[in-house]
């Protein structure tokens, strides 16, 4: 059965790399919005903060689970790469984990602690979201630079840290446009406009830097006919950016028309950027060092995971959709006791 699609040592690593990539992408567009809402926290007043939390409250935990799945897939499918990548990223991972701890518990503490402490937990929520976003951006940059710690690569990683944080605040703002109304929505439109610049800057920086760092990546993009075949990626990205820019100048519309479009477009933009990255790095899981075929676990073990995944993943998608349907509409009011 394992040989149904040819040599399992070839197709299983591809399937698992795709699954892992998909999990990371879903994580970025889902947890991205709730991290972004956290990053935007200092710009909101107390009442708005409550509504911002209400807009992400039922979702954040499930969003974060995609990160656990992604890292789990890396761990189970490419155990050697998992060790190499995570030991190289030891410090940023620790910063991210502490950030995730702080923001995760702040959701609960800010609502349950005595009123005077609420401000403290609001700050912890912001700090945790910021630490997580910055650390993830830093890791992305370092990964693109081949996991090397040198002044130039660190500088680039700091740049991607800034851009990803602003990018998250952008997708967070588009989420708030969808989930809120009135003044907060107007504010969110302004945040989104500013954030879009950061997201564009980040995509541009990565697009320029990765072919410069790696002749292999340069070759993959700028040879013929690849260059023409890949052209839709940057062209569509530019179209989406243009559409977003136009839209954000006119939102919010009367009767809340089109308020769902910016978030969806933002998702599209992140997906295109991600597809570009994935193309650049394939077949490497550790850039220039370890391919997915070299790092893959035994086919028997991968197959038994895949068998479960085929049944379970659609179920997960099903009840995730159920949750989004149940909590559809505006997060208008939040009651604390």
């Amino acid at each position: 059965m394992m040989t149904l699609f040819g040599d399992p040592a070839v197709w299983l690593p591809i399937v698992f790399a795709s699954l892992m990539g998909l999990s990371i992408l879903i994580y970025v567009v889902l947890d991205g919005y709730d991290l972004g809402v956290g990053v935007l926290f200092p710009f909101a007043d107390d009442d708005e903060k409550d509504r911002m939390i209400a807009s992400i409250g039922p979702f954040w935990d499930a969003n974060e689970t995609w990160l656990v799945l992604a890292i789990g897939l890396l761990l189970v499918a490419f155990p050697v790469a998992h060790g190499v990548i995570l030991t190289a990223l030891y410090l940023p991972v620790a910063v991210m984990l502490i950030g995730l701890i702080l923001r995760g518990v702040s959701f609960e503490f800010r609502a349950k602690a005595p009123a005077p402490r609420k401000r403290l937990w609001n700050n912890a929520f912001f700090a945790g979201s910021l630490m997580t976003s910055v650390a993830q951006g830093y890791m992305l940059g370092l990964y693109i630079m081949g996991l090397e710690w040198a002044p130039a690569t660190i500088a680039f990683a700091l740049l991607t840290a800034l851009f990803l944080t602003v990018g998250y605040s952008f997708i967070g703002a588009t989420w708030l446009i969808l989930k809120t109304g009135d003044d907060l929505q107007k504010k969110a439109v302004r945040w989104a406009r500013r954030g879009l610049l950061g997201a564009v800057g980040g995509i541009a920086a990565v697009s320029v830097a990765s072919p410069l760092v790696s002749p292999r990546i340069f070759e993959k993009w700028f040879a013929m006919p690849e260059f023409l075949l890949l052209a839709p990626l940057p062209v569509m990205s530019l179209l989406l950016i243009g559409a977003l820019w136009m839209m954000l100048r006119h939102l919010p519309h009367e009767h809340d028309h089109w308020s769902w479009v910016p978030y969806l477009t933002a998702m599209g933009l992140f997906a295109l950027a991600f597809a570009g990255l994935a193309y650049s790095f394939y077949p490497y899981v550790v850039p220039e060092y370890l391919t997915i075929y070299e790092a893959a676990a035994a086919p028997e073990s991968l197959f038994i995971i895949l068998a479960g995944t085929v049944f379970v993943l659609p179920t997960i998608v099903g009840y995730t959709v159920l949750a989004y349907v149940i909590f559809r509409g505006k997060a208008t009011e939040l009651r604390y006791d």
Partner: peptide
Amino acid sequence: VGNIAGPLLAYEVLTAFFLEAVFLGI
């Protein structure tokens, strides 16, 4: 021991974590 620990952890994420997280919201 990744060939053994891996699938067990994967099944934990797939069958437990998502179930808990999504329905906890509800």
